[in-house]
């Protein structure tokens, strides 16, 4: 049987331990081992952004990160975006602006947008479009997504 490794990581603020094979991507570990299916698989080769999460403050494609690389990292997934007090402003804005249709790309877009606004709270349309170019959406034509992010950006 293939080697299995124990990984300890901080996931949405909680320390989590899991066992995985080195060949398993972080995306697989989240979905298949930890049962956290909010992070989506769209292409499994880094070209659609559906599996975007935030690792140590940077957005990454979790299909291109090995689970074992999560050791010692701080990871935020879609499951960690809302708080008991309510939705994250970006989540609220996506809802109000109808910035999702099928919703499969939405977690990735939300994490990518959070990654941007955490760093650049006043990002403009050009910056948002550049930042989100690694996230594909096939339903909306991006218009409402960009507007939803802009709305939160301006609010800050």
């Amino acid at each position: 049987m293939p080697t299995v490794t124990q990984v300890q990581t901080t996931l949405n603020g909680e320390v989590v331990n899991f066992l995985c094979e080195p060949r398993q991507s972080l995306l697989e570990c989240l979905r298949d081992i930890l049962g956290m299916t909010g992070t989506k698989e769209g292409c499994n080769d880094g070209n659609c952004g559906a599996c975007t999460l935030i690792m140590d403050g940077r957005i990454v494609n979790s299909c291109l990160v090995l689970g074992v690389e999560a050791e010692g990292k701080e990871i935020t997934t879609i499951e960690g975006m809302a708080s008991p007090e309510g939705l994250h402003p970006l989540q609220q804005s996506f809802l109000e602006n109808a910035a999702l249709q099928c919703g499969i790309c939405t977690p990735g877009f939300l994490l990518a947008s959070k990654g941007l606004l955490d760093k650049e709270p006043d990002a403009d349309e050009g910056r948002i479009r550049h930042w989100l170019a690694g996230n594909l959406c096939r339903c909306t034509g991006y218009d409402k997504i960009v507007r939803a992010v802009l709305q939160v950006s301006k609010a800050k």
């Binding site: 880094g46 975007t52 690792m55 957005i59 990454v60 291109l64 990518a112 941007l116 690694g134």
Partner: peptide
């Protein structure tokens, strides 16, 4: 190179 996600790695 790639998108922002790729540039993070």
């Amino acid at each position: 190179i790639g998108g922002i996600q790729i540039q993070g790695r």
